[in-house]
């Protein structure tokens, strides 16, 4: 059973000032299975964030349909934005607890803070955090609502390589503890290969699917950068059309 079905005929941004009408997405179709980890890879500015906003129902002005989960129950969507978007006037812990239902158990928060190594920082205000820490808080916030679907919009961009790797490993750890459907946007193919079950390559505007490729390396072997690199080279050879998207 698929967790997300996307069938968008078109998404147009209306003209503002001198900039004309902008066709962002055209005939975009794909579906994602329940519990699958899918990476969306495409050039920057292609409309990947727009797509996530459509799925999260932040933007409902488009033609087509998006189904998340089965129709009887509303699926909970956790959204990790490109910038952490923490409320600066609430502490780390308050930021996390705010998105949870009243009557939540504090053990979940404690546990997540522990995994993300933020227990010490839970009473700190976000302006005192480093970017890497803020990112981790925003990941915890999305996990805290125990989402059925997790949307992630380049959450590791502008982190230095070691920090990005560390947060990425923590993310995988969280995801393995409680598997759920993930849609992860990135323009870094190595990152996509490390994380995904399947990679969907998207074109520049107007955005549409170029190809879908399953990542066949077992998860256990993916921390080895050599293995990832070999797979990447092979991908680029087998699918020359994706080269221009990177």
């Amino acid at each position: 059973m698929s967790a997300i079905d996307i069938n968008i005929h078109c998404k147009i941004f209306p003209a503002i000032g001198k900039a004309g009408e902008n066709l962002a997405i055209k005939n975009l179709q794909f579906s994602i299975d329940s519990g699958e980890f899918v990476c969306l890879v495409g050039p920057s500015g292609s409309g990947k964030t727009t797509l996530l906003n459509l799925i999260a129902e932040l933007d409902e002005d488009y033609e087509g349909e998006i189904t998340v989960g089965c129709n009887e129950t509303d699926s909970k969507i956790g959204y990790i934005f490109q910038n952490p978007r923490l409320l600066p006037w609430r502490t780390v812990r308050e930021n996390i607890e705010l998105v949870m239902n009243s009557g939540h158990s504090s053990t979940i928060v404690d546990e997540l803070l522990g995994v993300m190594q933020l227990t010490e920082a839970q009473q700190v205000y976000p302006e005192r955090l480093s970017l890497g820490m803020s990112r981790r808080v925003s990941i915890i916030r999305a996990f805290a609502i125990e989402p059925d679907v997790l949307l992630m919009d380049e959450p590791f961009v502008s982190l230095d390589a070691p920090t990005a790797r560390q947060v990425r490993e923590l993310l995988v750890k969280l995801w393995c503890n409680r598997p759920h459907t993930v849609l992860f946007v990135t323009h870094d193919l190595r990152e996509a290969i490390t994380l995904a079950d399947r990679i969907i390559f998207l074109s520049a505007r107007p955005m549409t699917v170029v190809s879908e490729i399953a990542v066949t390396i077992p998860r256990a072997g993916r921390h080895n950068e050599g293995v990832v690199e070999v797979f990447r080279q092979q991908l680029l050879n087998d699918y020359p059309e994706i080269k221009q998207l990177l």
Binding site: N53, E57, G78, Y79, R85, L87, R141, I145
Partner: peptide, 9 residues
């Protein structure tokens, strides 16, 4: 950004 965050949750 923060309003969107609130909406999405």
């Amino acid at each position: 950004d923060l309003l969107e965050m609130g909406c999405s949750f």
